[in-house]
């Protein structure tokens, strides 16, 4: 059974990168301390014997929900693009994805 490890400052820096958040050194210290305390509290579940217990991902027994394949109006493209930070030629415009700006 996997054991709960103690979260480190490096772990917090790693998950911040994965979540695309930039943290200052001070924030790293604060968040590491706070997350460690929350995860320590969650250790009560570690003592439980859960080997034969199935997981619940959803409280309501769901199967694939199908609907008739009918053409119907969707959101108006111009209205959606009007809410975007930048749009061009009917598409969302973003800065260069690779390398430096031209």
């Amino acid at each position: 059974m996997a054991r709960m490890a103690h979260i480190t400052r490096d772990d917090v820096a790693h998950v911040a990168r994965l979540a695309r958040l930039q943290l200052t050194d001070e924030e790293l210290d604060t968040f590491t301390d706070q997350l460690a305390r929350v995860l320590d509290h969650a250790r009560d579940v570690e003592a439980l014997d859960l080997a034969d217990v199935p997981p619940t991902s959803h409280p309501y027994p769901l199967r694939n929900v199908m609907r008739p394949d009918e053409v119907r109006p969707s959101l108006d493209r111009d209205e959606v693009l009007a809410a975007a930070p930048a749009a061009e030629d009917g598409q969302f415009r973003v800065p260069p994805v690779l390398g430096e700006a031209p």
Partner: peptide, 18 residues
């Protein structure tokens, strides 16, 4: 995240069943 999924999220989902 990899390495912690079973210990945290997986366990929590089983507690939900309990």
């Amino acid at each position: 995240s990899a390495g912690y999924y079973e210990a945290f999220y997986g366990k929590a989902q089983k507690v939900r069943t309990l």
